[in-house]
């Protein structure tokens, strides 16, 4: 029986963001925008969806008089990502077995 892929993570931009954040302690909004090549507006919407799901923490602060947005994975987010990767592996493995037989 296949597990359903988490719909929050199973979208291009949100998965890209989570994959970046899982690799680092925390990252600025501009870093995520640069690495994903997303528009600021779209990225902002997707970050809020991840935040609402409890997968990331967003901290807004001022740094040298400029607003700074810092994003960080939560424990729930790390857990969801691990489950997502496991589910993905089971799909791919099933596909592989199907091809082999």
């Amino acid at each position: 029986m296949f597990k359903d892929l988490d719909p929050i993570l199973h979208s291009q931009l949100r998965l890209a963001v989570v994959s970046l954040l899982i690799s680092v302690e925390e990252a600025e909004f501009t870093y995520l925008r640069d690495k994903t090549n997303a528009t600021a507006g779209n990225l902002s919407v997707q970050l809020n969806k991840l935040k609402d799901a409890g997968y990331i923490d967003i901290k807004k602060q001022f740094k040298d008089n400029y607003p700074q947005t810092l994003c960080k994975m939560t424990a729930a987010g790390i857990d969801a990502f691990e489950q997502y990767v496991k589910a993905l592996q089971s799909y791919l493995q099933a596909g592989q077995n199907g091809t082999d037989s």
Binding site: L5, H10, S11, Q12, L13, R14, L15, A16, T36, N37, A38, N42, Q46, L88, Y91, L92, G95
Partner: peptide
């Protein structure tokens, strides 16, 4: 990057 749904490989 757009907000599209992906295949498992993607």
């Amino acid at each position: 990057m757009a907000d599209k749904t992906l295949s498992e490989q993607e």
